Computed example of a mutant assay.
Amino acid sequence: MSPLLSVASDTATSPGAVIVLVILGATGYIAHCVIWPYRACPTCDGGGRFRSPYGRAWRYCNRCGGRGAQLRTGRRIWTHIKNTDRNR
């Protein structure tokens, strides 16, 4: 058997590789939350308001308050950690 086939057929992954991938994923998500802290509101799809069934009147979205954006969970955690460290 060639060395490439023997490596490709080995399905066992080391726990160290999984830990490195989790750390890289978490670091990437934190960087994403620092650069882009807001996400589009899932209820109004970022529009901030809804139209009536007839299309003439509209109302603000209850979930985002008409802004069309919500703060990401990771950004909330980042801000909490930053403020906790600052208050010491």
Rank of each mutant, 00 (worst) to 15 (best):
residue 2 S to M: 00
residue 69 A to W: 11
residue 18 V to C: 10
residue 81 I to M: 02
residue 65 G to R: 05
residue 88 R to S: 00
residue 87 N to F: 12
residue 10 D to P: 00
residue 49 R to A: 13
residue 52 S to C: 14
residue 84 T to A: 02
residue 57 A to N: 09
residue 79 T to V: 09
residue 60 Y to F: 08
residue 33 C to W: 02
residue 64 C to N: 01
residue 33 C to L: 07
residue 45 D to G: 09
residue 83 N to A: 05
residue 24 L to C: 14
residue 52 S to A: 15
residue 44 C to K: 02
residue 58 W to F: 15
residue 20 V to F: 12
residue 22 V to H: 03
residue 3 P to S: 03
residue 43 T to L: 13
residue 1 M to W: 10
residue 28 G to Y: 14
residue 77 I to E: 00
residue 61 C to D: 02
residue 49 R to D: 09
residue 45 D to K: 13
residue 46 G to C: 06
residue 46 G to F: 13
residue 55 G to M: 06
residue 40 A to L: 14
residue 22 V to F: 04
residue 35 I to T: 11
residue 7 V to M: 04
residue 86 R to P: 01
residue 44 C to S: 04
residue 11 T to I: 11
residue 5 L to T: 04
residue 70 Q to R: 08
residue 21 L to Y: 04
residue 32 H to Y: 15
residue 30 I to N: 01
residue 10 D to R: 10
residue 75 R to S: 03
residue 47 G to Q: 13
residue 31 A to F: 15
residue 17 A to I: 09
residue 1 M to I: 02
residue 85 D to N: 02
residue 28 G to W: 14
residue 65 G to W: 08
residue 9 S to I: 10
residue 85 D to Y: 13
residue 35 I to V: 14
residue 18 V to Y: 08
residue 16 G to E: 12
residue 66 G to S: 03
residue 5 L to A: 06
residue 50 F to D: 03
residue 41 C to I: 09
residue 48 G to A: 05
residue 61 C to P: 08
residue 78 W to L: 12
residue 61 C to I: 11
residue 18 V to K: 11
residue 35 I to Y: 13
residue 47 G to D: 13
residue 37 P to H: 01
residue 13 T to V: 13
residue 83 N to T: 05
residue 50 F to N: 02
residue 46 G to V: 11
residue 59 R to H: 07
residue 50 F to H: 14
residue 36 W to M: 09
residue 87 N to V: 07
